[in-house]
Design a protein around this nucleic acid. Structure first.
Length: 292
DNA sequence: TCTCAGGTTGACC
DNA sequence: GGTCAACCTGAG
């Protein structure tokens, strides 16, 4: 057992599914460790564990504010649910499946960079690339005898250059990451979106090479807590097409219309609905979509 | 060996 | 203003 000084936070009535929250594809660097998970919160190594019997969060390496902010502990899930369409049996089922799934607040650069590398990759690959980038270019951090590297900032990755990023297994994504890192590091591209509404912020992100609608929405949702953002990846597209498509649109439903439908149907917390549906679909693909 | 994956881009109609 | 192949890499 790893020795470290831990703190505790009583969650009261707040639901939390830590396992799902850290491993459902929002964030990619956490590793199961003992009863909990070891990773990093921003620049510091951290450990988090949930005791469901007492509904207590046990953590080390970060302040209570940092941990609860990162895990979205204070997101008002009951209010979120109350904004959802009441007659939506699919969403109701998805929420019942993982009621404590929450949306993380990742540091914006870490979130942007990670999702730039996510293009056409599966979760284990994204995780592998993230860990390699951390190990090669991040700073080593220790906690209770465990070590973790923080996510390299844009300056560090810009300095590394495309070829060395390619060596981390990024493939064609290296060019996108290198370019984004240079633009952010030079200050030419600001990650401060204060004063921009969601559409403006999304349009700005899409100016980056290698960032399209899907990645921009992931960054808005997981890095900026813009809860109306609704990333449509192949899983969510499958969900929408199979379970929500209007008559005659099952086979052909333009992305633009699909996106508009999601915003209207799921409302201001569409991003939360997306996470529940995404997670549910990945664990019930045979039932929902049949053998493929 | 071969296909395909949690996307984006640029070329072509 | 829409369709379609190409792009790196690793896993099944």
């Amino acid at each position: 057992m790893v020795m470290m000084q831990t703190n505790r936070m009583a969650l009261g009535e707040k639901a939390l599914d830590l396992e799902a929250t850290l491993h459902c594809g929002q964030v990619f660097h956490w590793t199961p460790q003992g009863q909990g998970h070891f990773g990093a919160l921003g620049n510091e190594a951290a450990y988090v564990e949930h005791d469901p019997s007492k509904n207590v969060l046990i953590f080390a390496g970060a302040s209570v504010e940092t941990v609860s902010n990162y895990l979205g502990i204070n997101d008002p899930l009951n209010d979120v649910i109350s904004t959802f369409p009441t007659e939506d049996a699919h969403l109701t089922a998805a929420m019942a499946y993982t009621p404590g799934l929450r949306i993380c607040r990742q540091p914006p650069w870490e979130c942007l960079a990670t999702f730039i590398t996510s293009s056409l990759k599966q979760v284990p690959h994204i995780r592998q690339m993230s860990l390699t980038l951390r190990e090669r270019f991040g700073r080593k951090r220790s906690l209770g005898g465990l070590t973790m590297h923080d996510y390299p900032g844009p300056e560090r990755l810009a300095e590394a250059g495309e070829e060395r990023l390619r060596d981390c297994g990024l493939g064609f994504r290296a060019k996108s990451l290198a370019r984004a890192a240079s633009r952010v590091a030079s200050g030419e591209f600001s990650l401060d979106f204060d004063g921009l509404d969601d559409d403006e912020a999304r349009a700005k992100l899409c100016q980056l090479y290698g960032v399209g609608e899907k990645i921009a929405n992931c960054v808005l949702l997981f890095g900026y807590a813009r809860f109306a953002a609704f990333p449509i990846d192949v899983w969510v597209e499958r969900v929408l097409r199979h379970l929500y498509a209007p008559r005659g649109r099952k086979r052909r439903w333009p992305a633009r219309e699909m996106q508009a439908f999601a915003a209207k149907h799921f409302g201001p917390y569409a991003g939360y609905a997306q996470q529940y549906l995404f997670h549910y679909a990945r664990h019930h693909d045979k039932v929902l979509f049949g053998a493929r």
